[in-house]
């Protein structure tokens, strides 16, 4: 094992620990906790399998392994981003409906209070 692989494994493992920690403190809800646990596990496994990845890259004809990793990482991040924006939009929509509902309720409560005051 060379130095760089050691560093990569430490980094991947730290990330994994961080995700486990966030999950245990309920800072990630189940769905996202599971997603990040999967990602970080894959990260650790890839760090361990670094030498084999080099062979794999040679085998499929990629001359420079890091470029393959960057490409994959970039695609994963891009997919995650659009997924999160989609979630954000849905939350916005829901919050809007909630705000409107609160306003309707507020109006009803006020009207009822007024009626009570009059009677």
């Amino acid at each position: 094992m060379d130095h760089i692989q050691f560093i990569v494994i430490i980094a991947a493992f730290s990330f994994f620990i961080h995700v486990v920690f966030l999950t245990s403190k309920n800072k990630l809800t189940d769905k996202y906790a599971f997603m990040w646990l999967s990602f970080s596990t894959i990260g650790v496994l890839m760090a361990i399998a670094l030498p084999f990845l080099n062979q794999f890259a040679n085998w499929i004809g990629v001359a420079y392994l890091p470029s393959l990793i960057f490409l994959l990482a970039f695609l994963v991040v891009l997919t995650l981003l659009i997924y999160h924006t989609q979630l954000l939009s849905r939350q916005e929509q829901r919050i809007k409906t909630l705000i409107q509902e609160v306003a309707f309720l507020q109006k009803e409560v006020q009207e009822q209070r007024k009626e009570e005051d009059h009677s």
């Binding site: 705000i99 609160v102 306003a103 507020q106 109006k107």
Partner: peptide, 9 residues
């Protein structure tokens, strides 16, 4: 007669 939204939409 009005409805007051608690935050700006």
């Amino acid at each position: 007669p009005h409805i007051s939204l608690p935050v700006n939409l």
